Simulated scan of single mutants.
Amino acid sequence: MSTRHVALVTGAARGIGLATAQGFAAQGWRVVLLDRDADELARVVSDLPDATALVCDISDPDAVAASFATLDRLDCLVNNAGVAQFGPIEACDFALWRTIMATNLDGTFLCSQAALPFLKDSRGSIVNVASISGLRASTLRVAYGTSKAAVIQLTKQQAAELGEYGIRANCVCPGPVRTKLAMAVHSQEIINAYHDAIPLNRYGSEAEIAAAIIFLASDSASYITGQVLAADGGFDSTGVGLPALRKGAP
């Protein structure tokens, strides 16, 4: 059995998940990349030394069980995989609601359960990736925001119950991130509005979110559990405050 630390990252074929896997690999961890996109997963895994690819839809309990049965060790599980579809509440039918919950919440739960025997052995950690939409409500995100709020609560449940095994559980809530997908669908008007609402006046990068995840998995965070870290440029801190009022206007 390998003595190197092992991290499994879900939704690792692109975006924050891939950046996180790359960050772990750069620090000498052995990385397992899990994603349902087999073609993209095969393309990116070849660029990481000693990495393993697992093709899996995390909303499928049997597929999750089969994937985790291939592991020999696990020190950190990063539950990053998620889906999003935005629209008004009245347009969110139950099938769409369940599709989002099945991956974002059920998948996070299923992977965490499957990882427990390994994490008990290693006294490892779980890092769940939620969203700023789980901390503050936003229009057009009824299923997505609710699923991510549930992931935050799941994290706290995990921390409360698994601490006796030496397992830590924390959550990262990314704000707006400059991913290829976001830039493809965000108009300049939306980009400008986000810049105005975020104290740092910019989107985050995938690497910046990955750095927060990797910190929580590291020994530097050995006494941190049950915490929710908003990696959001200060977005959550502004609440409902108007950007113009932050400039000192009466």
Results as ranks from 00 to 15, higher is better:
Val127Pro: 06
Asp47Cys: 13
Met101Ala: 08
Thr103Trp: 02
Arg123Gln: 15
Ser59Gly: 15
Arg123His: 15
Gly107Asn: 04
Ile58Tyr: 06
Phe109Cys: 03
Leu74Asp: 06
Phe118Gly: 03
Asp121Trp: 01
Asn104Thr: 03
Asp93Glu: 11
Leu48Met: 15
Arg43Gln: 13
Leu105Thr: 10
Thr99Ser: 06
Phe118Glu: 04
Arg73Ile: 02
Asp60Lys: 09
Val127Cys: 09
Leu77Gln: 06
Ala63Met: 04
Phe109Asp: 01
Arg73Pro: 03
Val127His: 10
Val44Trp: 10
Asp50Pro: 07
Phe94Asp: 15
Ala115Cys: 08
Ile126Gly: 12
Ser125Arg: 11
Leu74His: 10
Ala102Gln: 05
Asp106Ile: 01
Pro49Gln: 06
Ser125Leu: 09
Phe118Asn: 03
Gly87Asn: 07
Ala84Gln: 14
Thr52Pro: 00
Ala84Asn: 15
Val78Gly: 11
Ile100His: 04
Leu71Cys: 08
Ser112Arg: 05
Ala115His: 06
Ala84Pro: 10
Ala95Glu: 09
Ala84His: 13
Leu48Glu: 14
Ala102Val: 01
Asp106Glu: 08
Pro61Met: 12
Glu90Val: 11
Ala65Asp: 13
Ala114Trp: 02
Leu119Met: 08
Gln113Tyr: 00
Ala95Ser: 09
Ser112Pro: 10
Val44Lys: 10
Val45Arg: 12
Arg43Gly: 05
Asn80Ser: 14
Val78Leu: 12
Met101Asp: 00
Val64Cys: 03
Pro49Met: 02
Phe94Ala: 14
Pro117Asp: 00
Ile100Leu: 10
Trp97Arg: 01
Ala81Pro: 09
Pro61Asn: 10
Val64Asp: 02
Thr70Trp: 00
Asp57Met: 08
